[in-house]
């Protein structure tokens, strides 16, 4: 017994010595600290300290800000054929190196003015440019004004739909959709369905869900199924609902029981 105690003391002193060497403070808790720790253990531990502002990606923030910018409307564009435009752009030497913003969030207030069904599309400008190597595919016209830059944003020319002064000009939403989907289809690359590019804005369920003060679990399920009927039917065909298997703990395996939600489990609603 004494031998074991002396061993423990030797160990502790060794730890203290090492702690002192590498600058580890408080390696051995003092008695008062130990008491405090014991009291703290009984309480619910405080959540880890988080800073007041959560971490944000700087380029995402910049893209968000950029999406809100208003660009003055380009009234007139230069009329030239697609090939002429392509060749002229190539001659000017404009290319990937001239890209100022490699990432855009297509979240213009022009579109949101009329509807807000889907979240913004994240558009990787540089990636598209480096794969296509042809700016003229998207930047298909230039402003007529000679002082303007060769390429502008989509929202400079395409803003509100059905302008009476520009009846042939597409609105921003249609311009995006026609340009992106058309090209993706043609190239057989990239998403062509709604959810491939943007996430659906889920409506606020606070108003939609109607439940009593203290609902039964079955009432909650019923309320979900009121709108999501198909999701309920799908659930009945999933492995979560239909799992079963042999029970290895049946005595001597004399009675082979296929146990599981599909057979004998009780929490089937």
């Amino acid at each position: 017994m004494t031998k074991r105690l002396s061993l423990a003391i030797a160990l502790l002193t060794a730890i203290a010595a090492i702690g002192g060497l590498i600058g580890f403070q408080g390696g051995v808790p003092s008695p008062s600290e130990a008491v405090a720790a014991a009291e703290g253990a009984e309480k619910i531990p405080a959540p880890p300290q988080t800073s007041a502002t959560p971490w944000t990606a700087p380029d995402q923030e910049a893209a968000k800000k950029r999406a809100q910018e208003f660009v003055p409307f380009v009234e007139a564009v230069m009329e030239e054929c697609d090939l002429c435009r392509q060749m002229r752009l190539r001659e000017t030497g404009l290319g990937i190196k001239d890209i100022t913003n490699s990432y855009f969030l297509l979240d213009s207030p022009i579109i949101k003015k009329t509807e807000d069904l889907y979240g913004p599309v994240r558009f990787k400008h540089s990636k598209h440019a480096s794969q296509l190597k042809d700016c003229a595919l998207c930047h298909h016209r230039r402003p007529l004004d000679a002082k303007a830059k060769e390429t502008t944003r989509c929202s400079a020319c395409h803003q509100e739909a059905f302008r009476s002064d520009q009846p042939e000009r597409l609105g921003l939403k249609a311009a995006f959709h026609q340009q992106c989907t058309g090209c993706h289809q043609e190239m057989q690359k990239g998403p062509t369905d709604c959810l491939g590019c943007h996430r659906k804005n889920v409506p606020d369920h606070k108003e939609l869900v109607k439940l009593p003060e203290k609902p039964e679990p079955t009432q909650v399920t019923q309320e979900c199924l009121r709108c999501h009927k198909a999701a309920g039917e799908d659930m009945l065909k999933t492995a979560h609902w239909l799992w079963k298997g042999p029970s290895p703990y049946t005595l001597n395996r004399s009675k082979h029981v296929e146990h599981g939600k599909a057979t004998s489990a009780v929490n089937n609603f």
Binding site: T114, E115, L117, A161, F162, S164, P167, L170, G171, K173, A174, H177, Q178, T181
Partner: peptide
């Protein structure tokens, strides 16, 4: 016409 994502419906005179 307002919601059409591709302006398949054009509204005007």
């Amino acid at each position: 016409a307002e919601i059409c994502p591709v302006e398949a419906i054009t509204f005007g005179r």
